[in-house]
Design a protein around this nucleic acid. Structure first.
Length: 426
RNA sequence: GGAGAUGUCGAAUAGUGGCUGAUUUCGCAUCUUUGCUAAAGAUGUAAGCCUGAAAGGGCUUCGAGGGUUCGAAUCCCUCCAUCUCCGCCA
């Protein structure tokens, strides 16, 4: 959400931002409604002021007749007030709906474009492995090594269901532990706080982070009205919801682990095999809250991106970084980098990390503030990036496969695998 | 699942229809006194919105949302949270 006063004063900027994101939004319609809202509000408040003033007189008057007369007079004011309040309520509802639909303004450095095909590669790291044989997919490799069971996964859980097994489990846990230690070592000068956060989350945090109301169909919903979140970002961002932070606490860096659930409503035919696109997986997420400064946001955006790159480098997974174009940005995002790992069987880069910053778009909705030196309350800035999801393991398995179908363990993970250096058929 | 209790300004607390946007204590900030500290005293101590060049004025907020009333922290309803007891499950 943006500040209505900012929108009023910068309507061209807001309109241009929406256009760059390829989001239809009529700023003039919002501003017209806002004029109506303020006009009605002024009138309602004047009537309330009158009511308050006369109420005070009613108390002070001892003359019973005069009192009765004033009460009668106030009844009329109240009736008129009720009518206007109803009208205002309707307008406010409509206004709220438009307000949560206003897209945040993308950064100057975001390239133009309609969708992910227009994202711009800004750097690559690592060598795409040159295989002397036709590389297998992670699906085949894992099945042959008994690391996963999709058939029973589907039987038990339904479409896209899976069981991780044996070395699949050990490798996955090794990766969690490696990444967690990576951040613990990173915890100077500012501490990364490891957290395990809920996936079962109320509606408000989804509204606050910008996943609702726009993406309702992508979320699982319980019969009690909560939703299952697709990323730990939702609960982690809401941790400080409705709180006023001390400036000395900033930046707050959280490393949050949670299960992630995705309905994949719009991608029924895509990636139907393997672990690339599943309904349920686990995720470690970097979430940062910093002071309200563009420079700070940019600084930490680069930092959370660098963290993910360092992890990929330590694992030896070739990747590239793209800067997402306007059309591929979410409603609240100012700028986003995707890190995409090389997936040999597909001969493609596939997204493994998504680093974005939001300025105060999320924190305004979530009401997370701090008091600045000038004594003013400000909304903190927020940003996040994946630390590790299930996908890097897919890339790792395919990139490290050997002619005999075994998988070499990257050196960094060997200690986390109890000294094991290779996954092979026994 | 059943029964009951509670939710007030950073903390604790007063407050059962108008004189309460709200008592008191602590905390915190500034100032005074002081060789320094402590102690004492004085003053202040929310946020949001509307309006205004500003000064200022106004509105809203006592867990949240509705309702009753000319008027609600106070009465009624729903929800949320916490606590106690019972049941159920492990």
């Amino acid at each position: 959400m943006l500040d209505i006063r900012f929108i009023r004063e910068n309507k061209e900027l807001v309109a241009a931002g929406a256009k760059k994101k390829h989001i239809d939004f009529d700023v003039d319609a919002l501003l017209a409604l806002d004029d109506k809202r303020r006009e009605l509000m002024t009138s309602v408040e004047a009537k309330r002021a009158e009511q308050n003033a006369v109420s005070e007189k009613i108390v002070q008057t001892s003359d019973a007749a005069e009192k009765q007369q004033m009460i009668a007079q106030m009844k009329e004011v109240k009736d008129a007030l009720t009518v206007q309040e109803e009208e205002l309520k309707g307008i406010l509802k409509e206004w709220q709906l438009l307000m949560v639909a206003v897209p945040n303004i993308p950064d100057m450095s975001v390239p133009d474009g309609a969708d992910d095909a227009d994202n711009m590669e800004i750097r690559t790291w690592g060598e795409q492995p040159a295989f002397s044989f036709e590389p297998k997919s992670h699906t085949d490799l894992m099945l042959e090594l008994d690391m996963v069971d999709f058939d029973r996964g589907t039987k038990v859980s339904g479409f896209r269901g899976y069981f991780l097994k044996n070395d699949g489990v050990r490798l996955q846990f090794a990766m969690w532990n490696f990444v967690q230690d990576f951040f613990i070592k990173k915890s100077a000068p500012q501490k990364w706080t490891p957290m395990v956060v809920p996936s079962l989350v109320r509606r408000e945090p989804f509204m606050g982070t910008g996943y609702l109301p726009q993406s309702e169909e992508d979320l699982y919903k319980t019969q009690d009205g909560e939703y299952l979140s697709g990323t730990a970002e939702v609960a982690t961002m809401a941790y400080y919801m409705d709180e006023v932070l001390d400036k000395s606490q900033l930046p707050i860096k959280m490393l949050a682990f949670s299960p992630a659930f995705r309905r994949e409503a719009g991608s029924h035919g895509k990636d139907t095999k393997g672990l690339i696109r599943v309904h349920e997986f686990y995720k470690l997420e970097q979430v940062v809250l910093c002071e309200a400064s563009h420079a700070e946001s940019v600084k930490y955006h680069e930092e959370v991106t660098a963290n993910a790159e360092e992890i990929m480098q330590a694992l030896g997974i070739p990747y590239r970084v793209v800067v997402n174009c306007g059309g591929d940005l979410g409603l609240g995002q100012v700028k986003k980098y995707d890190i995409e790992a090389w997936v040999p069987a597909e001969k493609k880069y596939r997204e493994t990390h998504s680093a974005s910053y939001f300025h105060d778009f999320q924190t305004r909705r979530l009401n997370i503030r701090y008091k600045d030196e000038d004594g003013k309350m400000k909304f903190v800035h927020s940003l996040n990036n994946t630390a590790l999801s299930g996908r890097p393991m897919v890339a790792l398995i395919e990139n490290f496969q050997q002619p005999d179908g075994s998988i070499n363990i990257p050196e960094a993970l060997v200690p986390y695998m109890g000294g094991q250096t290779v996954i092979k058929k026994i």
